[in-house]
Design a protein around this nucleic acid. Sequence first.
DNA 1: GTCAAATCTGGACAATCGTCAAGCAGGTGG
DNA 2: CCACCTGCTTGACGATTGTCCAGATTTGAC
Lengths: 207, 207
Amino acid sequence: MTSKVSRRPVDKFDERRRELAESALVTLGELGYARTTLREIASNSEFSHGVLHYYFSDKLELIVFCVGYYKARCVHRYDDVVERSTTADELLEGFVAKLAETIVEEAPMHRLWYDLRSQSMFEESLREPVDAIDRALEEMAWRIVTRYAELLGAPLTATPALVYGLLDGLFQQALLGHIAGREGALGRMQDEVRAVMPLLFGDRAAA
Amino acid sequence: MTSKVSRRPVDKFDERRRELAESALVTLGELGYARTTLREIASNSEFSHGVLHYYFSDKLELIVFCVGYYKARCVHRYDDVVERSTTADELLEGFVAKLAETIVEEAPMHRLWYDLRSQSMFEESLREPVDAIDRALEEMAWRIVTRYAELLGAPLTATPALVYGLLDGLFQQALLGHIAGREGALGRMQDEVRAVMPLLFGDRAAA
DNA sequence: GTCAAATCTGGACAATCGTCAAGCAGGTGG
DNA sequence: CCACCTGCTTGACGATTGTCCAGATTTGAC
């Protein structure tokens, strides 16, 4: 109906690629980029290790595909908070709450992200897809602060790169602290974000 | 003369360990943690690969030793600027200049640092030495901003963790941009740091 | 000079990796 | 029923890895 042939190889093919990418991301989140092997990925799926070369020409292509697949699900993590909030304070509190929540619930994915970003400084092939995610995350942070400025009614002088750099640095430190088991790492990060956000705006920031 | 026995095995032993750590750091900076092999480290030194197990029980112990060795040389990178500066503006300009300079001249070491810090989220054994460096870097950043506040005569409300998180985030983005060959990445970071520093202080920050 | 300890070499080991290819299962079209 | 394509399994390969060790070499004490 949708096409002349009843079987749609492209859809099936891509669907299985995504399924394998899912298993690969679980493994990558557990072991990191360096220690992840194709056999371990396969053992985390319902297939054998040989099938990976049927759907991916290369280990690197698999990783790159995973990076892109990972991107799609995480760059809109705060959209709900941004859209639903009606006051600046509500937005800020919803934001810091979700920041801590995602560190607790998705720590393996976040440490994988920082691992891959580090690897991109050594592996040329990773730079483009990694940079694409970094830009998408930067836009995500920008959507938050512009909406915050709107609700606050204060002028926003910072640049997207500045905002993302600041928040990402605080987030990374909190993730490190949380994985290392340091108590209060998340709460401290929340306080830091609460302290930083008003600084990005004009004089009315005391609210 | 310096001791009863003319031969000092401990000193010699440690001296060679440092020598090998030097070669290891060169290799690690080029290839990253994942792709660095003991044979490659040895080929970057004047010894054969077997000697590494004479001075280090394990590959991991070698890496950990390298991390600690690396720490000693980098945490005082800005001490000169801090001590020599007589005005707040001079300190800030010296700081941002040195930030860009170290990215250009020591990019392999910095990407290695971020690589190792990421690995510490997967490898338990790396957490303690990595965290020690992170704390030392935090203190380094704190020395800079406290001196800056002193020269500025303005109150400093931020915490060490906040200051380090912010600066480290901006530094990391600049390093990524520089390694990826993006023009203006360093200059943009310098502008961002110049914009952020005054925000950490009281109202007199417009200077 | 002699001898033993310290130092270093280079090859070998098992384990593990990415990759590949030959072959099996199962459904589809003719 | 046969031929065929797709999806998948299994086992093997060459290469590379960390590790270990037997022996060569160097060093320093006497």
